[in-house]
């Protein structure tokens, strides 16, 4: 149902573009747009889930409780210290090669699906970077506010959530916007684990026509996406400034 809906979108987009588009783009258009939608879908989910996961990670790291802080710190350290491509291949080709016998039916139904594995890795990767960005933001919020909140009896978690984090996120917002664009660029790597995102479709088209303009069409679509993300980030930034000024 949902899948058909996506196909309908790309078919209509391509039909709309057909009078304008050249020969090569016209033929490959549904592929490009199908891939474009997969890329958007993965980005929205990975960045959405990653945002909240990053908040959780940041709180865990700053909680001062070792059983919480250490795993969170280790996760951030490992995901920031290794290439995304390596993370993808360890989890897809590495863990995936263990098969159903070792992983069990529940885990296997997850690892079986390249799209889900891609989503998992992108989410963990972005949450590690975003957590570091939020931590940097928190360092710039006056600690006195936290102490004041604690001294009037507010629990630490609530003080962080209601007072410290909103300010930290506002401070860190431009850096967060950069990370969103970087994530979009990194998402192209999921084409190496058989997901047909925009990059995967592009490589498939190029594999048949060996025409370098194929890559240029893909570049234009990625630039459009970068523009959309920047516009989104700027809109939110303006709103935050407005509400902060009130």
């Amino acid at each position: 149902m949902y899948q058909e809906f996506k196909y309908l979108i790309s078919d209509s987009v391509c039909a709309g573009l057909s009078p304008l588009s050249g020969d090569l783009f016209g033929k490959a258009c549904p592929r490009f747009i199908d891939g474009f939608l997969v890329t958007i879908e993965l980005l929205v989910l990975a960045c959405g889930i990653g945002f909240f996961l990053a908040i959780g990670l940041t709180l865990a790291r700053m909680s001062g409780r070792r059983p919480l802080a250490w795993p969170a710190t280790a996760l951030v350290y490992v995901f920031r210290g290794t290439p995304l491509l390596v993370q993808l291949w360890i989890i897809y080709f590495g863990f995936g090669s263990l098969g159903e016998d070792i992983l069990g039916p529940i885990l296997w139904s997850f690892f079986k699906n390249p799209w889900l594995v891609g989503l998992l890795v992108l989410t963990l990767n972005t949450s590690a970077y975003v957590s570091e960005i939020f931590r940097g933001g928190l360092a710039n919020v006056d600690r006195g506010q936290l102490e004041a909140a604690l001294s009037i009896g507010m629990p630490w978690l609530r003080a962080m959530r209601r007072i410290m984090l909103p300010q930290a996120i506002r401070i860190a917002w431009p850096a967060y916007g950069n990370e969103l664009v970087l994530m979009m660029k990194g998402s192209a790597l999921i084409s190496t684990i058989t997901v047909l995102d925009l990059m995967g479709q592009t490589r498939t088209v190029f594999a048949r026509n060996f025409d370098l303009t194929t890559y240029l069409y893909a570049a234009i679509l990625y630039l459009v996406l970068a523009g959309l993300i920047t516009a989104f980030v700027n809109t939110i930034e303006r709103r935050m400034q407005l509400s902060a000024g009130r």
Binding site: F93, L98, R203
Partner: peptide, 23 residues
């Protein structure tokens, strides 16, 4: 068609490895 569940690999051994794993 381009919308069937076709998984493309860089090499044949990689495709066979996924077949063997059941993916």
């Amino acid at each position: 068609g381009s919308r069937a569940d076709i998984r493309l690999y860089d090499t044949n051994p990689a495709a066979f490895s996924d077949l063997k794993a059941g993916r």
